[in-house]
């Protein structure tokens, strides 16, 4: 096993996952549609006053994307577990954490990135102030990889279960709380024209650590639940 073969294994894995997503490209739009519908529920429930919506816009968009991402987490290992390729991955001679990092990366690209792209539009529906828009996108760019990485560890723990949906939410949401606080906090601070760099820096620091540690933890968790 050489470094070159490890890289080619990663590349093959990424290509395979991308092809699988492309074959079912209709499903890839589901999280976006879900987030859009959640956003649409808020003006219906709270009334259409722009003042009210403006104040909650950033937080609502954040929560909607977080839940959409949570629902999409289930697909991370589901089909691989069912067709047995996940066990092949665990048994392969290449570092499992690196392979999992590739999988998580592809999953983030195909589920979270579309959500980030539509986030300004979703904000517009709720009259998000213009000066907050790019802070929101920046916070999402830092926060969603964190959500995917932390979520992947919990998915790995529940991978063998038949009905893991509610349990997964119970495991994941407490760990998501700090990310939500910092991400939405940055947006709210920006809306009040307050300094908002600090929470973004905290998110960046957490992301750097998670990028290295989460794939390792994910690999360990997967080994536990497939043992």
């Amino acid at each position: 096993m050489t470094a070159a073969s490890t890289w080619s294994a990663c590349a093959a894995l990424v290509r395979r996952d991308l092809i699988l997503v492309w074959r079912r490209r209709g499903d890839a739009l589901n999280p976006v549609l879900f987030a859009l519908m959640v956003i649409a529920l808020f003006p219906l429930a709270l009334g259409p006053e722009p003042e009210v919506l403006r104040r909650i816009a950033a937080g609502v968009v954040f929560v909607a994307l977080l839940i959409a991402g949570l629902l999409a987490l289930d697909t991370l290992f589901r089909s691989d577990y069912e067709d047995g390729s996940l066990e092949q991955l665990v048994l392969s001679p290449h570092p499992l954490s690196l392979l999992l990092a590739c999988k998580i990366g592809v999953h983030w690209l195909t589920t979270a990135l579309p959500l980030i792209i539509v986030a300004p539009l979703l904000g517009e529906l709720l009259h998000l102030p213009a000066e907050v828009r790019w802070v929101l996108v920046g916070a999402l760019l830092l926060a969603t990889p964190l959500l995917s990485l932390i979520g992947a560890v919990c998915v790995a723990l529940t991978v063998g279960m038949h009905r893991s949906g509610m349990l997964l939410a119970l495991l994941v949401l407490p760990l998501y709380v700090p990310i939500l606080i910092f991400g939405a906090g940055a947006c709210n601070a920006a809306a009040l024209a307050l300094p908002h760099a600090a929470p973004l820096l905290w998110l960046a620091a957490a992301l750097v650590v998670a990028l290295v540690v989460a794939p390792l933890a994910c690999a360990a968790a997967l080994r536990i639940s497939l043992s």
Binding site: S97, P195, A197, A198, W202, A205, V208, V209, V212, V213
Partner: peptide, 26 residues
Amino acid sequence: IVVSLVLVAVAIAAGLTALALQQNMT
């Protein structure tokens, strides 16, 4: 490789944290 990657990540994170602490969180 793993240990050095973790160390690098922690170092970067520590730098970012120090930067964040200089900002005021009111």
